[in-house]
Write a protein that binds this DNA or RNA. Structure first.
Lengths: 167, 167
DNA sequence: TATTGTTATACTCTATAACTATA
DNA sequence: TATAGTTATAGAGTATAACAATA
């Protein structure tokens, strides 16, 4: 286990007030009705909100996803988790390394195929996930409130699914 | 005008079939109903679709945004365009450099304040924008079709606006 | 002092090629 | 020959600090 690329480093942001870049004064722009543009702005905003909320436990969105998946489906293999998250298995390695280094998850050699690893949360990881879920629910409820309620959330999820899940 | 960071380089992707990473086989995952996760997947998918569609004229989403804004509101200053796009003015410099280098836009010293530049499309830039708009409309119509029609598009834009434009 | 454009720099995310050890 | 995990590496996007010229 090598010493990994970047030491766990100070991730807290200054912002506090306006998310996005340079406190967007939001004059009207020809891009306002453009799907890809709005999608990018919204995704950026939400991720920044996520990062701010999770700053106290120093957890990034992708890391949270991995913990949550391993929590609900322990024993999945490397490539399976990567596929479920829609990230390349090559990029999943460092992600998993970081979680292992923090003692939150580990790889065990799975019986049959000696190439592959089965992935699990440690007991520390399970405790950690529980407190992460509290922050997560608070974060998600905040988003639902902004959207205008659970129905609006469901509508958004369905629309986004239509973009991604077709053909 | 220095020789800029990265030479115009081969941007075409291989994909052709499945966008996203490692042809997402999309088993159900605990992340399926999570707003930030769905938003990220959708944004990634749409941007990749954008990049593929615009590959023939080698134009990235951010570059297209700049051209379009300068097309409709010529003479804006550096910082104003950056603010409208929600990017830092410091990151806008290289973007504008690239467009200037391709002969699509230019900076002119604006009368009053000798610190600031007024930004314009060149006549080449205007021609280029026209053909870019054709691709754009095709791309956007394709997205609207996936969403299920113009009303679904409007609903999506409105929901995304609620996330970004509040308080 | 504050602001505009700018450079330098760094971290994250995503992507490709190629290695190794197994199968 | 193909697959699972891995390494190395590179390109975009985004962020901060600091500087020169001008206000």
């Amino acid at each position: 286990m090598k010493a990994r690329i970047s030491e766990r480093n100070t991730r807290q942001k200054a912002s506090k007030t306006a998310k996005g870049a340079d406190r967007a004064v939001d004059e009207p722009s020809p891009m306002d009705g453009v799907i890809s543009y709005k999608l990018r702005r919204a995704q950026l905003w939400v991720f920044q909100d996520f990062v701010e909320n999770f700053a106290p436990i120093d957890l990034r969105p992708a890391e949270f996803s991995v913990l949550r998946i391993l929590g609900e489906r322990p024993g999945l293999r490397h490539a399976e988790v990567a596929r479920m998250l829609g990230i390349k298995r090559t990029n999943f390695v460092a992600l998993m390394d970081a979680l292992e280094k923090r003692g939150l998850a580990d790889r065990r050699t799975s019986g049959a195929d000696r190439r592959s690893h089965a992935l699990f949360l440690t007991s520390n990881g399970e405790k950690f996930l529980k407190s992460a879920m509290e922050i997560f629910h608070w974060h998600e409820e905040n988003l639902v409130r902004r959207l205008g309620g659970p129905k609006a959330r469901d509508a958004l999820i369905e629309l986004l699914s239509k973009l991604v899940d077709q053909d």
